[in-house]
């Protein structure tokens, strides 16, 4: 049996000689088989094209929503860009006084929290000692 390469290399004269050779028997249903094969190949090609070009129905709305979201986010980013802030106080001494007051408040609350935690610790130790009979 010839390979495809050998068939491709046949010239017109060879093809004519083979066609005229009546001793070569052509299968009876060859034409039908060839028709089915060609139809199957064209159907497969069509399905490949369909899969490539037709996206799921939710893709286009999602793409539109993503584009809109991008535009809104970009606009908001531009509009919400913080301006350069101005110092509240022009006098460093007044600014320092505010810092002192604020840090005093922060450290006061922190020390209160620590004191409460220590108190809770002492109480817990007392309760534990009592429970253990110490």
């Amino acid at each position: 049996m010839k390979s495809i390469r050998e068939i491709e290399d046949l010239g017109m004269e060879d093809l004519g000689r083979i066609a005229a050779d009546t001793s070569i028997q052509v299968p009876a249903d060859l034409e039908e088989d060839l028709r089915k094969t060609v139809a199957a190949l064209s159907l497969a090609e069509e399905e490949r094209e369909t899969r490539r070009s037709v996206a799921p129905s939710w893709v286009r709305p999602l793409a539109a929503a993503a584009s809109l979201g991008l535009l809104v986010a970009a606009g908001a980013a531009i509009l919400n860009t913080p301006e350069e802030l101005q110092d509240t106080y022009s006098d460093p001494a007044v600014a320092y006084a505010m810092l002192e007051e604020s840090f005093g408040k922060i450290s006061s609350k922190m020390s209160q929290g620590i004191a409460k935690a220590q108190e809770a610790g002492y109480e817990a130790r007392e309760i534990t000692n009592q429970a253990l009979g110490l």
Partner: peptide, 19 residues
């Protein structure tokens, strides 16, 4: 009530002699 102190103001505070 809003208060903002900038890095430049912190530098000025640091230059106050008796801070």
């Amino acid at each position: 009530e809003a208060v903002y102190i900038s890095p430049n103001m912190f530098k000025l505070i640091g230059k106050i002699p008796d801070v």
